[in-house]
């Protein structure tokens, strides 16, 4: 038992050293700086404020470099960084209004260059997740969230974990395909609470 643990650790250490030692562009033939230049040039006529939106942060750079499969050491760096980026509600409450949460989960509005920045943005959860039995138009990029709260017996620590997941998916899963909706200022604290209520209120269609 002990021996096999050592073996695993040793193998891990070798893997980490190997990865850390490699150049960032190891996943492809083109380095990130050149790729970034070409990407930016696609939007040369966009307003400056819009160009700024696609400047990559460290996490986006790492996920690009490793094509969403970061080696363990890099994955660790990402989750450490993103955990620090999570801002929990000051009042210590995680549950809002599930009815508002359902509307937000349905709406994909916001953030596109033709969208009205004054209109309420949505969380677009149904684009990727099944949430309630009533809604048949749901995507499958993420796992089904049917009965999410019920399965977890509505435990407060699980509601907190869901808040963190929605606020910053990569604090939980480095290079997840799920957007960091709170961190990227797409959803507000209150909106995330409303969506957590959708997952954790016994009266919500998710748990019915």
């Amino acid at each position: 038992m002990k021996k096999s643990w050592f073996a695993v650790l040793a193998a891990g250490a070798i893997a980490i050293t190997a990865y850390v030692g490699e150049a960032p562009a190891q996943q492809g033939k083109v380095d990130l700086a050149t790729t970034t230049k070409t990407m930016n040039a696609i939007f040369s006529k966009a307003p400056e404020a819009w160009k700024a939106k696609i400047v990559q942060d460290e996490t986006q750079k790492a996920c690009t470099t490793y094509r969403n499969s970061p080696p363990p050491a890099v994955a660790e760096q990402i989750s450490e960084r993103e955990k620090k980026n999570v801002v929990l509600p000051a009042d210590g409450k995680f549950l809002g209004d599930w009815k508002t949460g359902e509307r937000l989960a349905q709406s994909g509005y916001g953030g596109r260059h033709t969208d009205d920045p004054k209109r309420v943005m949505g969380g677009n959860c149904y684009a990727c997740h099944q949430l309630s039995k009533k809604e048949v138009s749901f995507g499958t990029m993420g796992p089904s969230l049917l009965e999410y709260g019920k399965i977890r017996k509505y435990k407060p620590e699980d509601a907190k974990a869901a808040y963190i997941k929605i606020y910053n998916a990569q604090a939980v899963f480095p290079c997840s395909n799920m957007p960091r909706l709170g961190h990227n200022k797409h959803l507000t604290e209150q909106q995330i609470k409303d969506i957590v209520a959708l997952l954790f209120d016994p009266e919500s269609p998710v748990n019915k």
Partner: peptide, 29 residues
């Protein structure tokens, strides 16, 4: 270059082309 751009993640939704066009059997809605 096209391949590199395909994996470039950025923006408010952390998306790249690969987010939606890499894994098999996925749907949006």
């Amino acid at each position: 270059m096209g391949e590199a751009l395909f994996y470039f993640r950025a923006g408010q939704w952390d998306f790249s082309c690969a987010t939606c066009h890499e894994a098999e059997g996925q749907r949006i809605r």
